[in-house]
């Protein structure tokens, strides 16, 4: 559905270096990276705002073409150009000019989020502003959602509503997809099917979320083993009475241990909130 090929942008602080990305229909793809890794630059480029080198197509249409723009809704991180307006005016603009507009959806969202129609966006709190943008963009009937840190500033109720909206978007059709930028592991755990890591402007190959949890494990063994920190997959070793090993390739590490006849006391998959920081820190390819 979304195809990014050789996207390169060398401008300002964050650079993108020949990015390739495929988001397939029916899937949710999370782009993970630390602050300043270039997530927003990537999303701006993908939404057609600041074209760089390379090609970006959605269902075969170039992203900045008219057909391309009809394929996606975009939740940016900053919305400076809209801040001078009230929701009432933005609503009117969409209603009269946006062929994908779904009025019933917008009315429901305004009620759910309890949004003030007459207040200028710049006078709203961060969370309220985010809810307003969500209400406007999620009222457009498009197959692809591009979301740059969509949970920013939302209260718990808002988070729950957004969870439900994203679930509904994906359940509505097999043709739908979501690509979202985040640095919060819990969002990835709840939402994603595939993960790509953005590190210093380059994007890792995608990995299936559950594959990551199968590979990244914590293993406890009873005895000290010579050379364990150099064993395949091993990321860290700490010892108290037992030795605790973090591995990014459980299968290889366990094979290595069993060759040496070492008893494994217990092993357990790492949750993403434990494995992702390791991945981001070391820049290890996922």
């Amino acid at each position: 559905m979304l195809k990014v090929r050789g996207l390169t942008r060398r401008m300002g602080e964050s650079q993108l270096e020949s990015i390739n990305l495929d988001v397939e229909r029916g899937t949710v793809h999370a782009i993970i990276g630390n602050n300043g890794a270039g997530k927003t630059t990537l999303f701006e480029a993908m939404s057609g705002d600041y074209p760089g080198k390379g090609s970006i197509t959605i269902n075969g249409h170039p992203v900045s073409s008219l057909k391309g723009k009809e394929q996606f809704s975009y939740i940016p991180q900053t919305i400076t150009e809209l801040e001078a307006f009230s929701l009432r005016i933005l609503h009117k603009l969409h209603k009269t000019h946006d062929s994908l507009w779904r009025e019933d959806r917008f009315q429901t969202l305004v009620k759910q989020f309890n949004l003030p129609m007459n207040k200028h966006l710049q006078r709203m709190s961060i969370g309220m502003k985010q809810k307003s943008i969500l209400a406007l963009q999620l009222s457009r009937d498009t197959p692809l959602l591009m979301l740059d840190e969509p949970y920013t500033g939302l209260d718990m109720e808002g988070q729950q509503i957004l969870d439900r909206l994203l679930l509904q978007h994906m359940e509505a059709s097999d043709e739908h997809a979501i690509v979202l930028a985040t640095h919060i592991a819990d969002e990835v755990q709840r939402l994603a099917d595939y993960i790509s890591i953005l590190h210093d402007g380059t994007l890792s190959e995608r990995v299936e979320k559950d594959e990551l949890q199968r590979r990244w494990q914590r293993i406890w063994i009873e005895e000290r083993v010579e050379g364990i920190s150099q064993a395949p997959g091993v990321v860290s070793v700490s010892s108290t009475r037992t030795q605790e090993i973090i591995t990014q390739d459980a299968e290889a590490t366990k094979a290595w241990l069993s060759e040496r006849g070492v008893m494994i006391i217990k092993s357990q998959s790492l949750k993403l909130h434990e494995s992702i920081p390791h991945i981001l820190k070391t820049g290890v390819s996922a």
């Binding site: 949710v28 969870d163 679930l167 709840r190 994603a192 099917d193 299936e208 559950d210």
Partner: peptide
């Protein structure tokens, strides 16, 4: 999709 989000796994699974 709903089951995946309940369990925190992917729809592939």
């Amino acid at each position: 999709r709903a089951l995946a989000s309940q369990l925190g796994c992917s729809v592939i699974t």
